[in-house]
Protein backbone atom coordinates (compact mmCIF):
# COMPACT_ATOMS: atom_id res chain seq x y z
CA UNK A 1 0.00 0.00 0.00
CA UNK A 2 3.00 2.26 -0.05
CA UNK A 3 4.06 2.15 -3.70
CA UNK A 4 5.19 5.58 -4.72
CA UNK A 5 3.44 6.63 -7.91
CA UNK A 6 5.75 7.79 -10.69
CA UNK A 7 4.00 11.07 -11.17
CA UNK A 8 3.16 11.87 -7.54
CA UNK A 9 5.58 14.76 -7.17
CA UNK A 10 4.64 16.10 -10.58
CA UNK A 11 0.96 15.83 -9.69
CA UNK A 12 1.56 17.64 -6.40
CA UNK A 13 3.46 20.39 -8.23
CA UNK A 14 0.66 20.83 -10.75
CA UNK A 15 -1.93 21.07 -7.98
CA UNK A 16 0.19 23.65 -6.21
CA UNK A 17 0.42 25.65 -9.42
CA UNK A 18 -3.37 25.92 -9.38
CA UNK A 19 -4.06 23.34 -12.07
CA UNK A 20 -7.68 22.40 -11.43
CA UNK A 21 -7.62 19.32 -13.65
CA UNK A 22 -4.67 17.97 -11.72
CA UNK A 23 -6.43 18.63 -8.43
CA UNK A 24 -9.55 16.89 -9.65
CA UNK A 25 -7.39 13.95 -10.72
CA UNK A 26 -5.93 13.82 -7.22
CA UNK A 27 -9.41 13.93 -5.74
CA UNK A 28 -10.86 11.27 -8.00
CA UNK A 29 -7.93 8.97 -7.34
CA UNK A 30 -8.05 9.12 -3.54
CA UNK A 31 -11.46 10.42 -2.43
CA UNK A 32 -13.06 7.00 -2.25
CA UNK A 33 -10.52 5.52 0.18
CA UNK A 34 -10.33 8.70 2.26
CA UNK A 35 -14.09 8.99 2.42
CA UNK A 36 -14.36 5.47 3.78
CA UNK A 37 -11.77 6.28 6.41
CA UNK A 38 -13.66 9.43 7.41
CA UNK A 39 -16.96 7.55 7.37
CA UNK A 40 -15.67 4.81 9.67
CA UNK A 41 -13.77 7.16 11.93
CA UNK A 42 -16.28 10.01 12.30
CA UNK A 43 -19.58 8.52 11.19
CA UNK A 44 -21.81 9.15 8.23
CA UNK A 45 -23.01 12.60 9.28
CA UNK A 46 -19.54 14.10 9.46
CA UNK A 47 -17.72 12.21 6.73
CA UNK A 48 -18.60 14.75 4.01
CA UNK A 49 -17.21 17.72 5.94
CA UNK A 50 -14.13 15.78 6.92
CA UNK A 51 -13.38 14.75 3.34
CA UNK A 52 -13.76 18.38 2.25
CA UNK A 53 -11.39 19.46 4.99
CA UNK A 54 -8.87 16.77 4.07
CA UNK A 55 -8.54 18.13 0.53
CA UNK A 56 -8.47 21.74 1.67
CA UNK A 57 -5.66 20.95 4.10
CA UNK A 58 -3.96 18.82 1.47
CA UNK A 59 -3.85 21.75 -0.94
CA UNK A 60 -2.46 24.00 1.76
CA UNK A 61 0.18 21.49 2.79
CA UNK A 62 1.17 20.07 -0.59
CA UNK A 63 4.26 22.27 -0.53
CA UNK A 64 5.61 20.10 2.27
CA UNK A 65 5.17 16.89 0.25
CA UNK A 66 8.65 15.72 -0.73
CA UNK A 67 7.82 12.35 -2.23
CA UNK A 68 9.20 10.23 0.64
CA UNK A 69 5.99 8.21 0.55
CA UNK A 70 3.29 7.90 -2.07
CA UNK A 71 0.86 10.78 -2.33
CA UNK A 72 -1.87 8.30 -1.35
CA UNK A 73 -0.09 7.41 1.89
CA UNK A 74 0.64 11.07 2.58
CA UNK A 75 -3.04 11.92 2.10
CA UNK A 76 -4.16 8.98 4.18
CA UNK A 77 -1.95 10.03 7.08
CA UNK A 78 -3.22 13.59 6.79
CA UNK A 79 -6.82 12.31 6.77
CA UNK A 80 -6.24 10.08 9.78
CA UNK A 81 -4.72 12.96 11.75
CA UNK A 82 -7.68 15.17 10.90
CA UNK A 83 -10.09 12.41 11.90
CA UNK A 84 -8.33 11.93 15.23
CA UNK A 85 -8.21 15.69 15.88
CA UNK A 86 -11.89 15.86 15.07
CA UNK A 87 -12.76 12.96 17.36
CA UNK A 88 -10.66 14.25 20.21
CA UNK A 89 -12.21 17.66 19.87
CA UNK A 90 -15.68 16.15 19.82
CA UNK A 91 -14.79 13.90 22.72
CA UNK A 92 -13.52 16.88 24.68
CA UNK A 93 -16.72 18.77 24.03
CA UNK A 94 -19.10 15.96 24.76
CA UNK A 95 -17.13 14.12 27.43
CA UNK A 96 -19.17 11.05 26.71
CA UNK A 97 -16.38 8.54 26.34
CA UNK A 98 -12.86 8.43 27.64
CA UNK A 99 -9.72 7.07 26.17
CA UNK A 100 -8.90 5.23 29.38
CA UNK A 101 -7.37 1.83 28.77
CA UNK A 102 -9.19 0.51 31.82
CA UNK A 103 -12.72 1.29 30.76
CA UNK A 104 -14.34 -2.02 29.93
CA UNK A 105 -17.84 -1.35 31.21
CA UNK A 106 -19.27 0.38 28.16
CA UNK A 107 -23.00 0.00 27.69
CA UNK A 108 -24.03 -2.37 24.90
CA UNK A 109 -25.37 -0.69 21.76
CA UNK A 110 -27.65 -3.67 21.04
CA UNK A 111 -30.17 -5.60 23.02
CA UNK A 112 -29.78 -9.25 23.87
CA UNK A 113 -32.47 -9.95 21.26
CA UNK A 114 -30.20 -8.67 18.53
CA UNK A 115 -31.77 -9.25 15.09
CA UNK A 116 -30.14 -12.01 13.14
CA UNK A 117 -30.20 -10.23 9.79
CA UNK A 118 -26.83 -9.32 8.33
CA UNK A 119 -27.98 -5.76 7.68
CA UNK A 120 -28.91 -5.20 11.29
CA UNK A 121 -25.65 -6.78 12.41
CA UNK A 122 -23.74 -4.41 10.16
CA UNK A 123 -25.57 -1.40 11.59
CA UNK A 124 -24.84 -2.67 15.08
CA UNK A 125 -21.17 -2.98 14.28
CA UNK A 126 -21.01 0.50 12.70
CA UNK A 127 -22.73 1.98 15.74
CA UNK A 128 -20.38 0.13 18.07
CA UNK A 129 -17.32 1.33 16.14
CA UNK A 130 -18.55 4.90 16.56
CA UNK A 131 -18.70 4.36 20.31
CA UNK A 132 -15.03 3.37 20.54
CA UNK A 133 -12.49 5.84 21.93
CA UNK A 134 -10.46 7.50 19.14
CA UNK A 135 -7.25 5.52 19.51
CA UNK A 136 -9.08 2.17 19.68
CA UNK A 137 -11.19 3.15 16.72
CA UNK A 138 -8.19 4.19 14.67
CA UNK A 139 -6.38 0.90 15.23
CA UNK A 140 -9.52 -1.14 14.57
CA UNK A 141 -10.56 0.73 11.42
CA UNK A 142 -7.09 0.63 9.95
CA UNK A 143 -6.41 -3.04 10.75
CA UNK A 144 -9.73 -4.82 10.64
CA UNK A 145 -11.77 -2.65 8.29
CA UNK A 146 -9.12 -1.28 5.91
CA UNK A 147 -6.80 -4.27 6.09
CA UNK A 148 -3.52 -2.59 7.05
CA UNK A 149 -0.85 -4.64 8.83
CA UNK A 150 0.35 -3.65 12.28
CA UNK A 151 3.61 -2.15 11.01
CA UNK A 152 1.59 0.07 8.66
CA UNK A 153 -0.92 0.99 11.35
CA UNK A 154 1.98 1.91 13.62
CA UNK A 155 3.49 4.21 10.98
CA UNK A 156 0.17 5.85 10.17
CA UNK A 157 -0.57 6.53 13.83
CA UNK A 158 2.98 7.30 14.87
CA UNK A 159 3.03 4.59 17.53
CA UNK A 160 5.00 1.38 18.21
CA UNK A 161 3.88 -1.84 16.56
CA UNK A 162 3.24 -3.37 19.96
CA UNK A 163 0.93 -0.48 20.80
CA UNK A 164 -0.99 -1.11 17.62
CA UNK A 165 -1.54 -4.75 18.64
CA UNK A 166 -2.56 -3.72 22.13
CA UNK A 167 -5.02 -1.08 20.88
CA UNK A 168 -6.55 -3.55 18.43
CA UNK A 169 -6.97 -6.17 21.11
CA UNK A 170 -8.66 -3.68 23.44
CA UNK A 171 -10.83 -2.37 20.60
CA UNK A 172 -12.09 -5.86 19.77
CA UNK A 173 -12.82 -6.55 23.41
CA UNK A 174 -14.70 -3.28 23.73
CA UNK A 175 -16.69 -4.04 20.60
CA UNK A 176 -17.58 -7.45 22.00
CA UNK A 177 -18.98 -5.71 25.06
CA UNK A 178 -20.78 -3.06 23.01
CA UNK A 179 -22.30 -5.67 20.75
CA UNK A 180 -23.55 -7.61 23.73
CA UNK A 181 -21.80 -10.75 22.49
CA UNK A 182 -20.41 -11.75 25.86
CA UNK A 183 -21.89 -14.93 27.23
CA UNK A 184 -23.67 -15.76 23.98
CA UNK A 185 -20.89 -17.56 22.14
CA UNK A 186 -20.95 -21.29 21.48
Amino acid sequence: MSDIGIGDRELAARCLAGDREAFEGLYRQHAHRLYNLAYRMAGSTEADDLLQDVFLQAYRKLGSYKGESSLGTWLYRLAMNLCLDHLRSRQGKMALVTDSLDQEDAAPVVSQERPAEAHAARLDLEQAIEALPPSYRAAFVLHDVEGYQHDEVAKLLGIAEGSSKSLLHKARHRLRTLLGAEGRSE
Binding site: H32, N36, Y39, D48, Q52, L56, F140
Partner: peptide, 20 residues
Protein backbone atom coordinates in the same frame (compact mmCIF):
# COMPACT_ATOMS: atom_id res chain seq x y z
CA UNK B 1 -15.39 -5.59 9.95
CA UNK B 2 -13.80 -6.92 6.77
CA UNK B 3 -17.26 -7.35 5.25
CA UNK B 4 -18.37 -3.76 5.88
CA UNK B 5 -19.34 -2.24 2.53
CA UNK B 6 -17.30 0.48 0.86
CA UNK B 7 -19.12 3.79 0.64
CA UNK B 8 -18.85 6.09 -2.37
CA UNK B 9 -18.12 9.75 -1.64
CA UNK B 10 -21.13 11.90 -2.63
CA UNK B 11 -20.50 14.01 -5.73
CA UNK B 12 -21.62 17.08 -3.78
CA UNK B 13 -18.41 16.84 -1.76
CA UNK B 14 -16.34 17.33 -4.92
CA UNK B 15 -18.30 20.49 -5.70
CA UNK B 16 -17.36 21.89 -2.29
CA UNK B 17 -13.76 20.74 -2.60
CA UNK B 18 -13.52 22.37 -6.03
CA UNK B 19 -14.93 25.65 -4.68
CA UNK B 20 -12.36 25.56 -1.85
Amino acid sequence: ARALPKIAAPEAVWQKVRAD
